[in-house]
Design a protein around this nucleic acid. Structure first.
Length: 758
DNA sequence: GACTCCGATCTTTTT
DNA sequence: GATCGGAGTC
């Protein structure tokens, strides 16, 4: 088989070992996608397995589509029949055809996180609970966590452990909210993201004949990014492959970064116990990065205790050291990074697309964008506030959703008075309360509105109902594009936006047009995204499902590819770039203070750092600022502890930018700008002293320029220690310190946070 | 019921 | 620096 040529030994084994349970531990850059692709091709070509019997779960739909293309290149058009996609999209599809078994309509709506939180807010209000205490985010996370561990609201309320736990957190009513939330979703014919997995589990648990059907269909199951699956997902795959036991999981424990949404690293560590005959293959050779990058990454991840043994290595070139860029403020950081990209491009003939800027939080993109724009460097942002979260888009989508599923409460609330029809919140709330009290569906209540609300509102509702009925017929009869057009025009949304001639209004109008284009593209597009046996249908409902389940990377449909990519580190999973800038390398930002406060999981943050660095093929830049705007306030920052953790051999300060005298910050706060407009402005309150590097009140590092051997020092993280060696030989000074509790460490003096004790 | 203005609050990360 | 909700007014 020609496709087997050029594989190294473990890769070859991973491709050709097809039977029985198997785990592939794939280090960063070890050619995992290649292995997965060829493995499927091999199953079909050499083992004559029907593509129809293969299920491959990937991290993004885009990855699935690309893999399908590559397999098609090897085996031909048969590849179309492989079931491929994300957990959510594959099982949403299965749930649609099996919905009746669990009492759902097959046209159920999928609630995104915004819908879920909005519903939670409504419930909290209805129960007269304190919305400061029962914040939508907190409640939602709690419910989500329960569902991901397969705890139903009944089990939740029956288990005293949850009760006492909630009571201790001063939120005793959480169980009640969970119950009402679940009931309301069910009544609205809606599933949230977690329900897609939760209900699949219920379906398989309670309907063995259904499980059996899929067990026999999916004779070979593959799971990519296994380290980021949660218990719910794990159980689905385990059940599906219980008959054939041909389950192959691929993952890297060092890249597990989704514990916060229920991913359980124990899945990977316990897999062996569940499958005693498990074969384990390790892919340890890195083909992506330079030696310097691989070794630096290894030196970081070495600090983690929880990990499987593996030895990632590369035969690639040595490469250059990681460069450290220091700046006075977040705005200057943007400037320096943009300038650096500009210069790298000029010096080494790189293209824009060879660069990625990675950050911990989405809000960090702003400063970068500004600077890149100023230097005329094209960029694109992956993730963040997506197109589909814009108000005008959500409004139109809500019309579509409600026209398909007349009980979708969240969509109804969005559109019933949009454009204004004289149906106010008082009326809507009354209707919802009546529906819930009499256990009637919203749709039913709407049709008898005249018995509940005054004549004028009732008339308006009557017209609204007629409108929706018209749309429903339209959707039934026509393809998605025609239906979407009718809805956009018939609802009055399009005219409303057209009438608004402001810049924002024009923008919104264009966005809606763009959405309609996307529907058109969907209708025209012959490609299948999810795979499976049915011919692709061009119904509006299918379009809606696809866009709700798009992952961040899926949404990257920019035709102009030569752009610098900006995204969070989470979004960068599975991608690679020639050069990577990791910005905002500051304590409390990365590692995130929030993460450390809420879950105390420094190791996950470190894995995130590991993921970020290993995206790069050639060069890594780390950047930190000494001050940064957060919550509209300028705060001083200290360099991240992660910088210290890199073995100094692999890192150096950027000769171009390190230590340059920096501009004072001239930005003013939004409050100041507002006051200025009102004419009541007081002086801008930028404190110049705050620009100086003052890590924390109780730990002020000393000037290390006169640090000498055998001096006693203190470090904020490592505690007390003694200097054993000062190294002045290189471009930057280094000190070796033996810490009382942490042993010997070598620190770069120019940014070492050391306090000298004389 | 619609509209406007002000202040509070928030920011991890995502399907 | 954006969004949301509440209060006040038409």
């Amino acid at each position: 088989m020609d496709y087997l040529e050029g594989l190294n030994e473990p890769q070859h084994k991973a491709v050709t070992t097809t039977e029985g349970p198997m785990m592939i531990i794939a280090g960063a850059g070890s050619g995992k996608t290649r292995v997965l692709t060829y493995r499927i091709a091999h199953l079909i070509k050499s083992k004559s397995i029907d593509p129809f019997n293969i299920l491959s779960l990937t991290f993004t739909n885009k990855a699935a589509a690309e893999m399908r293309n590559r397999i098609e290149g090897v085996i031909g058009s048969e590849a179309r029949n492989i079931w491929m996609g994300t957990f959510h999209s594959v099982f949403a599809r299965i749930l649609r055809s099996e919905a009746a078994h669990i009492g759902y309509p097959s046209n159920f709506t999928i609630y995104d996180a915004d819908d879920s939180k909005s519903l939670i807010r409504t419930i909290v209000k209805e129960l007269n609970l304190d919305d400061k205490l029962y914040k939508a985010n907190i409640v939602f996370n709690r419910i989500s966590g329960a569902k991901n561990r397969l705890v139903s609201y009944k089990e939740y309320n029956a288990n005293p452990a949850f009760k006492t736990d909630d009571a201790q957190n001063r939120r005793p009513e959480l169980g009640k909210i969970y119950k009402i939330y679940a009931e309301r979703c069910f009544k609205a014919g809606a599933m949230d993201f977690d329900d897609l997995l939760f209900n699949t589990n219920i379906l398989f648990r309670d309907h063995l004949e259904v499980l059996n059907k899929y067990q026999h269909r999916f004779k070979y199951v593959m799971v990519d990014e296994f380290q980021d699956t949660n218990i719910s997902q794990y159980l689905i795959t385990k059940n599906l492959s219980a008959v054939s036991e041909n389950i192959c999981v691929v993952g890297d424990d060092a890249q597990s970064i989704y514990a916060f949404r229920g991913a359980d690293i124990q899945n990977i560590l316990n897999f062996e116990k569940d499958y005693p005959t498990l074969k384990v293959i390790k892919l340890e050779q890195n083909y992506r990065s330079t030696k310097n990058i691989v070794n630096a990454a290894n030196s970081i991840i070495g600090y983690n205790k929880a990990q499987l043994k593996k030895n990632v290595w590369t035969s690639n070139d040595e490469g250059t050291q990681i460069e450290l860029i220091k700046s006075a403020s977040d705005n200057e950081e943007g400037k320096l990074v943009a300038t650096s990209i500009f210069e790298e491009k000029a010096q080494h003939q790189f293209h824009n697309k060879d660069f990625a800027v990675l950050y911990r939080t989405n809000s960090q993109s702003r400063a970068m964008e500004e600077s890149l724009r100023k230097l005329n460097i094209k960029y694109k942002i992956i993730g963040g506030l997506s197109f589909y979260q814009r108000k005008e888009i959500k409004d139109l989508l809500a019309y579509m959703r409600f026209s398909i599923n007349h009980n979708d409460e969240e969509s109804l609330k969005r559109i019933i008075n949009l454009p204004k029809r004289g149906i106010g919140t008082t009326t809507v709330n009354k209707l919802i309360v009546v529906a819930n009290e009499h256990n009637k569906s919203i749709w039913e209540v709407l049709q008898h509105a005249n018995q509940i609300v005054p004549g004028r509102a009732a008339n308006a509702i009557g017209e609204f109902v007629a409108l929706i009925k018209r749309f429903a017929i339209e959707i039934e009869k026509n393809d998605a594009y025609e239906a979407a057009n009718t809805i956009a025009k018939g609802s009055g949304l399009l005219q409303d936006l057209y009438a608004d001639r402001t810049v924002e209004g024009l923008n919104r109008y264009e966005n809606v047009q763009e959405l309609l284009n996307a529907v058109k593209e969907f209708v025209d597009n012959e490609e299948e995204v999810t795979g499976g046996e049915e011919p692709k249908d061009k119904q509006l409902g299918t379009f809606l499902q696809e866009i709700t389940l798009l992952t961040g990377q899926d949404r990257d449909d920019d035709d102009d590819n030569d752009k610098v990519t900006l995204m969070t580190i989470h979004m960068a999973k599975g991608l690679e770039f020639k050069n990577v800038y990791i910005v905002g390398m500051e304590e409390d930002l990365f590692p995130s203070q929030m993460m450390l406060n809420s879950r105390a999981d420094l190791e996950e943050e470190r894995r995130l750092f590991y993921v970020a660095i290993t995206r790069a093929e050639q060069k890594v830049f780390l950047s930190y600022a000494l001050s940064r705007y957060r919550f509209g306030r300028l705060k001083s920052c200290e360099p991240s502890r992660f910088i210290d953790e890199i073995d100094p051999k692999f890192i150096k300060e950027s000769s171009k930018f390190g230590g340059r005298t920096t501009q004072p910050v001239t930005q003013v706060t939004s409050q100041y700008a507002k006051n200025l407009v009102r004419g009541s402005a007081t002086k801008p309150s930028i404190n110049k002293a705050s620009l100086q590097h003052t890590p924390s009140a109780d730990f002020a590092p000393s000037d290390t320029s006169n640090l000498q051997e055998s001096m006693k020092v203190e470090h904020p993280k490592f505690g007390f220690g003694k200097v054993t060696e000062i190294d002045n030989s290189g471009t930057s000074r280094k000190a070796t310190v033996v810490f009382d509790n942490f042993g010997e460490k070598t620190l770069l003096l120019s940014f070492a946070k050391l306090k000298i004790h004389t």
